[in-house]
Amino acid sequence: MSSNRRNDPRAQVGASLAERPAETRSRPESGPGALQQHIGFKDKLVAGFLHHQMVAVETLLQLLAHPASSLMTWLVIAIAVTLPGALWMSVSNVEQLSGSIRESGRITLYLNDTASNEQGRQLAATLERLETIDEVIFISHEQALENFRRTSGMADALDLLPGNPLPVTLVVQPASSLDATSIRSLSERLREYPDVAAAQLDMAWLERLRAWLVLVQRMVWVLGGLLALAILLVVGNTIRLAIAARVDEIRVSKLVGATNAWVRRPFLYTGLWYGLVGGLMAWLMLIVLWLLLKQPAADLASRYGSGFELAALEPAAAMVLLIGSMLLGWAGAWWSVSHHLDEIEP
């Protein structure tokens, strides 16, 4: 077919020219200045939107057409998102767990030396009626001495003392609904009671845990920041290679009138897809991780007599990870594009 045309090119060209659409042939009559095509603003807007859509679909298909290399980038992003995601999940679980540990918030009230067992019992009954308090354990002079004798191992020394130096003691269990600050203020209020000499809040264990949590949370942020940087670099580098592979196309496009925005678009969408799919994979990994750990965690908790259940990442947090990874993919592409693309001139 093409050899035919080659044999008689002039006739072919002439014939086809004669058949050119009227708009083309009428150009000389349209006069000077009318040669440039004018496209309305609205058409441009629609065309711009369509181009976005087309580029979005094309870049995704392009990535799917090279699954091996795309998967590498996706996995790197997925792992980089999964790590802080998993830490985050652990931290929020431990936070939840620590809230359910009751003993940790116990308040021990030591009454005045002069307060009798009877006064102590009355105070215990009064306190027990408060809504902020679940339970009050009354420990008499004698019981206190007995306990001390058993636990201190200084029984002989105690026998030397003339009387019983130990005060009546009340162990207060705050309502489980109270958080740490409420427990603290409850303890302050209890100290003000007339017969109370001292109130000792036993929160050291809990506070140590809280301190650990703050530390680990900080670590999540630092780690998250570093891994975000890693995503930026990985996507940036991948896009740099993509740009290098398409230098000719970029040159030609610019030569026939492509704006920088037009040339940039496919690369930015590619970055967006890397981030989005990587983020989705990370979400999947976190769900698998949760499914794997759920049963062992419940077993472990039941051995401690707790009904604790490992919670999955909340949807809001998962959304944050997803959008974050998408934005990082886009930013990585933007960073790479602004470094390498504008330099390519025809």
């Binding site: 040669l35 440039q36 000719d248 040159r251 030609v252 610019k254 026939v256 009138g257 492509a258």
Partner: peptide, 17 residues
């Protein structure tokens, strides 16, 4: 870019994709 759209160019190494 808008200026370039007014001009058609042909090169020896035709610059095809």
């Amino acid at each position: 870019p808008y200026h370039r759209r007014k001009i058609g160019v042909v090169f020896q190494n035709h610059q095809l994709l």
